[in-house]
Simulated scan of single mutants.
Amino acid sequence: MDQIEEILNLIKDEDLEKLGKLNEVDKYNTKLVGKMVFKGLMRLILMGQKTSLRALEMVINRRMVGKNDDKNKVTYSGLSKRLKIINPDYFKGVYIDLINKVEKLLPKKTSHNLHRFDSTIINLSGYLIKDGLKVGGKSNDIQVKVSIGLKGQLPTSIRFCKGQEEGSENIALVRAINEAKIEKEDILLFDREIAKAGTFAEFDKKEYKFITRVNVGRKHDTVKQNKVTQTFFDNETEILEDKIVNLYRTQGKVAMTCV
């Protein structure tokens, strides 16, 4: 329990109140305020308990209201109404504030500037959710596809795919990268699902530095062969080649020159 309190204390009540005022989450409800909802949800998650309205009601009344304060006790029906209308930007603001604080506590590593992007798919029954992607599987199955950006050791962006075309990573992951906050010193890292040379050329035009794998047999011409050095990587990684190449589009035109 001491660890839970330590984590919750990373965000002060006054910070939660400022964010609540900024996002107007407490404008029409001064009893069940945003910070109470947030801390109640966080307690359930950190305690490893199942998140439900009943559980949230119990933890708020026990930890934040008090056993003998019947006047200010919350109910699960009140929580249900509150969660339906609370501004989600409030939780986004809390998350960003927490990320900025945690980053200062983590040790600086050589991988700190790596900004990794990947997607994951969650399969759900169509009886449980209406929105999502339909890609293979049973006719009534729904896929929720999420693209996540990780900078250093922390998730910094999350994007839920919307259109059916985003079943392709060439579309979904590129949109996730374009919507994320990319710093000048960041090095983007993604797998070979992004394969279009035109996309690489667009990233290069935006001055994005990136590392990826290309498909085996990808057409390219060697422009310059560099001397192989191992200084950047750990001792367990062997660099076989270091060269500058031209990548081609499907029309046979040079898309870009890269290392």
Rank of each mutant, 00 (worst) to 15 (best):
M1P: 08
D2R: 12
D2H: 12
Q3K: 11
E5N: 13
E5F: 03
E6Q: 14
I7P: 01
L8K: 10
L8N: 11
L8A: 06
N9P: 00
E17V: 09
L19W: 03
L22N: 06
D26P: 11
Y28M: 03
T30C: 00
T30V: 10
K31C: 04
K31L: 06
F38K: 01
F38C: 07
R43P: 01
K50H: 03
T51L: 12
S52M: 08
S52Q: 07
L53Q: 04
L56T: 05
R63W: 05
M64G: 02
G66M: 04
G66I: 04
K67Q: 09
D69E: 14
N72T: 04
K73C: 05
T75V: 01
S77A: 14
S77L: 06
I86V: 15
P88T: 10
D89T: 14
Y90L: 14
Y90G: 12
G93V: 10
I96L: 15
D97W: 06
I99L: 14
N100I: 11
N100E: 15
V102P: 07
E103M: 02
K104R: 13
L105V: 03
K109F: 10
T110E: 13
T110N: 12
S111D: 05
H112Y: 05
H112M: 08
H115V: 00
R116F: 02
F117L: 05
N123C: 01
L124Y: 07
S125W: 06
G126D: 01
G126V: 08
L128I: 02
I129V: 12
K130P: 01
K134G: 03
G136W: 01
G136F: 04
K138H: 08
I142L: 07
V144T: 01
V144A: 04
K145S: 01
K145H: 06
K145M: 02
K145N: 04
V146Y: 13
L154Y: 05
L154R: 04
P155K: 12
T156Q: 08
T156F: 09
I158T: 15
R159K: 15
C161A: 15
G163R: 06
S168G: 06
I171Y: 07
I171W: 00
A176E: 11
A176T: 14
I177P: 07
N178V: 00
E179P: 02
K184L: 01
D186E: 13
I187L: 14
I187S: 05
I187M: 12
F190H: 10
E193H: 10
E193L: 02
I194G: 04
K196W: 03
E202L: 03
D204W: 03
K206A: 09
E207W: 00
K209W: 00
F210C: 01
I211C: 08
G217T: 09
R218T: 14
R218G: 00
H220P: 03
H220Y: 13
T222F: 08
T222W: 05
Q225C: 08
K227G: 10
E238V: 14
L240P: 06
E241Q: 11
E241D: 07
D242T: 08
D242A: 10
N246A: 01
N246V: 00
N246K: 15
L247M: 09
